Amino acid sequence: MIVVERDIVLPVTVDEAVSYLEDFRHAERWDPGTVRCVRVGEGPVRPGAEWRNTSRFNGRTTELLYRLDVREPARLVFVGTNTSVTATDDMRFEARGDGTVLLRYRASLRFKGLAKLATPFLRAEFEKLADRVARRLPAAVTEERNR
């Protein structure tokens, strides 16, 4: 399994951050690996809501079905699956005294079948991707706030 974690300061309140990030279709704006993310079904975003996420990583395109598993006032957990991987995005939010939010973003990937063999070789690439997410996410949240 590969686990990457980043602490990211967001220039918004906890409520604004959770409200923005709970709709996983916004991953198109803040996740450099996401090519397309479309909601499956309708209705309010709550645990059980799903999205089809098309991602490009290391020159390959893959699709995962993501589900919102946990929606708490200061925590979101998404689980994405396909035949070769289960990806879990665990986001924990903490208000800071200066009006910003500290987001602890933890992504874990558990590969299945033959894909497990590639795990040691992919860690460095996922670390780079996590760095890119950490750079893009504050700008995406700010842009949404200014709309």
Rank of each mutant, 00 (worst) to 15 (best):
V40W: 10
T81H: 01
G41S: 05
R123M: 14
I2H: 05
V38A: 06
A107F: 11
G41K: 04
K112N: 06
L64C: 04
L114F: 10
L117E: 01
A124R: 09
L129R: 10
T34D: 08
L64R: 09
I8D: 00
E63W: 05
A130V: 13
A139K: 14
T13E: 14
R132S: 11
R29T: 01
P73V: 10
M1R: 01
D90G: 08
E50Q: 05
V18Q: 05
P47K: 00
F126P: 07
P138R: 00
A124W: 04
A49E: 03
D131L: 15
A49N: 04
A124Q: 05
L76R: 02
N53F: 03
T62Q: 08
A139F: 12
D23N: 06
C37F: 01
V79C: 10
F24Q: 05
G97Y: 07
L117R: 09
E125D: 15
R123L: 11
V101F: 02
V38Y: 08
A139Y: 06
H26G: 12
R110Q: 05
N146G: 07
V14I: 10
F121S: 02
V101Q: 00
V9C: 13
S84Q: 03
A134Q: 06
V9Y: 14
P120W: 02
V70G: 03
P120C: 11
Y20T: 03
V133K: 02
V133M: 13
F111Y: 14
W30V: 03
F126N: 04
T62W: 05
A134V: 14
S19M: 09
V14H: 06
L122K: 00
E63G: 06
K128C: 10
R67S: 00
E144Q: 11
R147D: 03
S108E: 08
L64F: 13
G97A: 15
E127S: 13
G33Y: 12
A130S: 12
V77K: 11
E144Y: 14
E5G: 04
V3N: 03
R6K: 13
L114P: 04
R145T: 14
D23H: 12
R29H: 06
T86Y: 12
R132D: 14
R75K: 09
D15E: 15
A124M: 10
